[in-house]
Design a binder for these strands. Sequence first.
DNA 1: ATTTGGCACTCTCAAGCCGCGAGTGCCAAG
DNA 2: CTTGGCACTCGCGGCTTGAGAGTGCCAAAT
Lengths: 350, 350
Amino acid sequence: MTDTPPITDLSDRAQRLLRTLVESYIREGQPVGSRTLSRTAGLDLSAASIRNVMADLEEMGLVSSPHTSAGRIPTAAGYRLFVDSLLEVKPLDSREVQTLRERLSPELETKALVESASGLLSAVTQMAGMVRVPRREHASLRQIEFMKLSERRVLVILVMNKNEVQNRILELDRDYSAGELQQMANYLNDRVVGRDLASVRQQLLREMKAVREHMNSLMLAAIELGEQAVAADQGADDVVLAGQFHLLDYAELTSVEKLRQLFEAFNEKREILGLLDQCIHAQGVQIFIGQESGHRILDDCSVVTAPYEVGGHVVGVLGVIGPTRMPYDRVIPIVDITARLLGAALNSRL
Amino acid sequence: MTDTPPITDLSDRAQRLLRTLVESYIREGQPVGSRTLSRTAGLDLSAASIRNVMADLEEMGLVSSPHTSAGRIPTAAGYRLFVDSLLEVKPLDSREVQTLRERLSPELETKALVESASGLLSAVTQMAGMVRVPRREHASLRQIEFMKLSERRVLVILVMNKNEVQNRILELDRDYSAGELQQMANYLNDRVVGRDLASVRQQLLREMKAVREHMNSLMLAAIELGEQAVAADQGADDVVLAGQFHLLDYAELTSVEKLRQLFEAFNEKREILGLLDQCIHAQGVQIFIGQESGHRILDDCSVVTAPYEVGGHVVGVLGVIGPTRMPYDRVIPIVDITARLLGAALNSRL
DNA sequence: ATTTGGCACTCTCAAGCCGCGAGTGCCAAG
DNA sequence: CTTGGCACTCGCGGCTTGAGAGTGCCAAAT
């Protein structure tokens, strides 16, 4: 009963010391000794007393020493406790929020908006930023049009909202006249407009089965064409990274081999995509410290993510990757606010 | 007369030795001593004799020794001479060409094609690949259509070729009916289709001045709208990079600070863009060794580029960035062929 | 019972030293 | 002109050493 929430095991003093230690290590990047703690923790204890506490903390697996006579550094568990119970999150000052808001203008088109968000995350935190591009399942469809390109090729135009238009080129099974295409578009517009892509797709599939016999072939073709048009959300399996190079600044990641692997992973994106997708259903900011993310390559890193919403649905995730000793008190609100602002920007153009 | 083409100053023997030295250094990455050269150059000379030649080469600034008792390594000038006069370019074997050709299928849309090219360059050479996206000035226009989105917003669709469609959203000064938009489109299609963007733009500007008075206002509006539509080739100022992480493998670039700057430059792209633009008018493969590129960040790198053409016009440049000791004999034909294949792929879908 | 000063101990890190190996330059003999 | 020989230089890995930082533990003090 006393070991699952280790916080109850910890005296105020131990908590205070752990907190000071973590803060100091995050700031300086160097092991913290008892002497330093006795000076900075404001507890008016001698170094010797502090050493006793540190020995306890070490036994609990919250801190460790790189070698006998270095100070202590937090372990992953130490960071975890720190983040969960000891951290005081600094609210961003309104000037910073204002800057973020300006750079995430609803006027931008989706891609630019996402790139801007990723760039901002990296610039503001001095770490790597990442944004999972928004899923479109719940984006509602405003209008659908066909445009004949050549005999069997037709351009499908899906108008999503004020600032976003998608188009796809489809290969048809036979030649349709411009008039036929217009009819098909009208037919589809009648029954899909204002609905979201996912439900449109479902409905089209349903209708296709239901009316196959007693329906004229043009309608059937229309449905099929519509289905094809809204089917694959191509390119949606993507994530936009920015500022990876910032990670070169952190000495603790300096094993060239590790760095290489990390950058290779950034290049491939697959792993990052998996990471982000796995926390798309979490509520609010989520933090993975060290191995918690489950991805080997990120063992020495921490990841802070937050989902963002449009129209009440989570449509994507964004976050940053940095060293485990990142300034969580700043990073957490930044990621949080950026997610809200990105959501808001996407939302306000529906 | 004897100093501009230093090749005439060099005895056959010296050339042979320089060549062997450069090849060996490119392969091994380590200073080459006289002993090694005497064994590998196939000249049947003792190490002592070779030392004499090496002293000459050093005096000419073609090689240098990192310290008294290491072997010699090529200087930038040495690489230059090697590349200009001593290099035997290996033709790619047809299997490799075939692979490249398959991955650069004309079926892909422009963006995918460019990304594929960049990825291939990096994967095949194990260095960083880069592709300047094609300019569209000379891309001919097939069709132009307008689609009304809301009162004053209209979607302009520019059909460029079989696999490429551009669209832009324009804000209008007044409300046009769907019929008016159709008329405008017809008017524009009559006079622009099949011409390239640049000349279309010029013509529209000319007509705008010429007919301002005795023309009905709809035509004038059509011209203005058309002008706006083809005006800015947005997003064309771009370059697609790939495989930057490969550069982490080369020990000679291992000063973390330099690497950081390099990756920062990759991130910003501006500098890379400048580099590529500066060699867009060169014919065929161009090589910058060390400082020759004029960009500080690339002092320890070499750059190999080649422009690619569509319809007889150069529309872009591609290339690779790697260490000065890159295997030029392989890299040069790879860059060359990739440029040709990319051009061909873009061309065959006009 | 907790806190503290003291002390012995451990370990890293930087500096210095040493000998090896690789390579050079030069010279005199071939 | 070429070559073997020889003295010399220099970087590198290994070893030692001393300083500094920090720990753990104990006995005395509060």
